[in-house]
Design a protein around this nucleic acid. Structure first.
Lengths: 236, 236
DNA sequence: AAGTGGTCTAGACCACTTG
DNA sequence: AAGTGGTCTAGACCACTTG
């Protein structure tokens, strides 16, 4: 019930994504024009246009006036440029990972969360708090809000055994993510988990993750600045 | 001649940017609605809407259905996925950039620098220290060591007029870069340049840049955590 | 109830690329 | 000349927030 009607431009976007994902439309293939899509999907040209426009902004398509719309060249991305399971990262460094589940509950969404997760204010959202250790030192606090509509069984997991990243990857595979990286001071509770004092600068990543069905989660990852850093290698 | 006609939505965007830049519209101020702008500029609502929409995507505005459009909280953001000229980034946000050249000298390389830049210990390396301002607030301190073999005229520049990034792009175009991102506390000198106290967490990026001929520079970019963040948008 | 943003339509004219 | 994308209009209905 109260199922939100899917917008027409979203239906067209999904269709195009599928054609590219499935390999039916290869790199540099010509994509149907605005007019053709408008007729195919029985929508106005402006609506077809919006689908093509948004996919272009996401880098999936390339458009040239007069020439047409084409599937973009896929870019290979490097390490800060991918979302990895922290357990794998730590094991790849030859260190031991373990995790402690601090919290796993349903909470009411406030205004900001509602917007970020595409839910309504007052609805429930699942919340997990997991502390990750590298060789028995706390290295990262992972606070995560999860969309219950897309991951209904989230509260039945035990995140000392499997990381939220692993579980979510199996339930709602990642299709898109945004990161925001900041330097912050942690609050008292976070400090006590990470065994740092309140003046230690921390690296904080706010990550929103999407699956094909919508926003899956908002993760707030906090790590002591002196023990954790992010890296990337770009080739032009 | 061949002057391209400025699109109407661009005129509206520019107008809104100016109001925010000039400080007439402060953070969280309400921005005129689509209907009001449409009437003011004698355009259709769809055109006014486009201006607001694009500024929202750029992070300058925040919109809530039913409530209105508001000036976003001011926080600078750089992309982690590309290396951009900070002057361009700031201007794209509709803000003003200027720079102050603090230092521009030749120094001896120590052991670590020698390895990082591919030079021999005791050789000369060029060093610049430039403070970047966004709307007259110091936003980033750029300390940069430059390989004199690849960029011999570095010391003859004036980095109040051109950013090191711009100059290096013209002399030794970027082919590769690595970033390391950390949260740190800045030293006293850096704090005094950035007008922060010694407990403010800072975001620090250490970036090595390559051209086709080898390592060009090592840049240490330090910015106050409360004014600057890094972002990325990944699509899988 | 009034205002706001979100989506959508069925047209229009234009600049540009392609055959 | 025909097709394509870029901009724009003047409407419409809807969901949502605010007073």
């Amino acid at each position: 019930m109260t199922q939100v009607k899917t917008a027409k431009f979203t239906i067209i976007k999904d269709h195009i994504c599928k054609m590219i994902e499935s390999g039916e439309w290869l790199q540099h293939s010509k994509v149907p024009s605005e007019n053709v899509l408008a007729e195919q999907f029985s929508v106005s040209r402006m609506t077809a246009r919006r689908a093509l426009q948004e996919l272009t902004e996401q880098g999936l398509l390339v458009r040239t006036q007069g020439a047409g719309t084409f599937v973009a060249t896929f870019k290979s991305q490097s390490s800060l440029l991918e979302i990895r399971n922290i357990a794998d990262e730590i094991q790849d460094r030859g260190h031991q990972h373990h995790a402690q589940q601090i919290e796993l509950i349903a909470v009411d969404v406030n205004h900001e969360l509602a917007i970020l997760l595409g839910l309504k204010e007052g609805e429930n959202v699942y919340y997990s708090e997991v502390l990750h250790f590298e060789n028995n030192e706390p290295i990262q606090l992972e606070q995560r809000y999860v969309n219950p509509k897309l991951v209904p069984d989230y509260l039945q997991q035990n995140f000392a055994d499997i990381t939220p990243h692993e579980y979510l990857s199996s339930e709602a595979p990642l299709t898109e993510a945004t990161n925001e990286v900041e330097a912050v001071l942690a609050n008292h509770e976070t400090c006590s988990h990470l065994l740092i004092d309140s003046t230690t600068p921390c690296l904080q990543v706010k990550r929103r993750t999407w699956s094909s069905k919508g926003v899956v989660s908002l993760a707030i990852l906090t790590a002591p600045g002196d023990k954790y850093r992010l890296g990337s290698h770009l080739v032009f």
